[in-house]
Amino acid sequence: MRKLLKTLEERFFFVLMAGSTAFLALLLLMIITIIVYKGLPSLTWEMVSQTPKGGYYFGREGGLLNAIIGSLYLASGAVALSLSISLPLALAMNVYFRNRKKLVNGIRFILDLLWGIPSIVYGAFGFTIMIYLGIRASLLAGIITVSIFILPIMVRAMDEVMKNVPLSLLESAFSLGSTRREVAFKVVTRQCFPGIITAVLLAFGRGIGDVAAVLFTTGYTDNIPTSLMDQTATLPLAVFFQLGSPIPEVQNRAYAAALILTVIILAISVATRLLSRKFHKTSIK
């Protein structure tokens, strides 16, 4: 009887696990199928190589190059800005303040709170600051807003990897007479390189895909931005606007834009994984 229950239990959890995996795979497949099915026919070379011409939003000629470039600028800028704060912060939490558990846990708590705040709130916050400082909607305002929004994601993702650096590794680095800066940047950064890449990737994906944070801050224009103070279009907003159109052809272009966004994220993810694998070799397990 006991044995029977045990087998049943095991069977149950196996079915649950297999079921959820299948469900997730199916969901992913469906999303990709819909985007490809609806978007691919509209995805012409013109779409990725030209900016919108007059009448583009009524289904006539032109493309979304402005939004593609805009999104890449925005996400790269935001990731770079955010990285320059989050890497030192994560290192500080795990090297400099290694013996200040309470302080570090306090920072973690605040970051987790920030992580939980919806991006529209960051958008509104960015908008308020913009008005207060008298900056117009621009690439710069968008970069700043998005970088704040992805900051907690990046720091916590790095922090989770750095937390797991074995104490023995830190001890051996310190016992050689390394300064904390050397331990942070030469040892911990190297040990955690794959994790840092993953964190950057995660933040990039969130940053490039978000609508709400850029809704009020970047403006929208048919031109490719040439300076930080220019307004800029982004892919998520392009999806958003076109999907709201009553013209079926324009709606399909929304799916094409979503497809472009997906492909960009996929390409960057593959490229960074390859890069991180190169460094993974020397990590200490």
Partner: peptide
């Protein structure tokens, strides 16, 4: 750091740095 440079420490479990053999010593 000056004190630590005067004393090398060999721990119970060896703990090489996450780099090449050459760079471990060069470190």
């Amino acid at each position: 750091t000056g004190i630590r440079k005067k004393m090398g420490l060999l721990s119970q479990k060896p703990s090489p740095l996450p780099m090449t053999i050459f760079n471990n010593v060069a470190y």
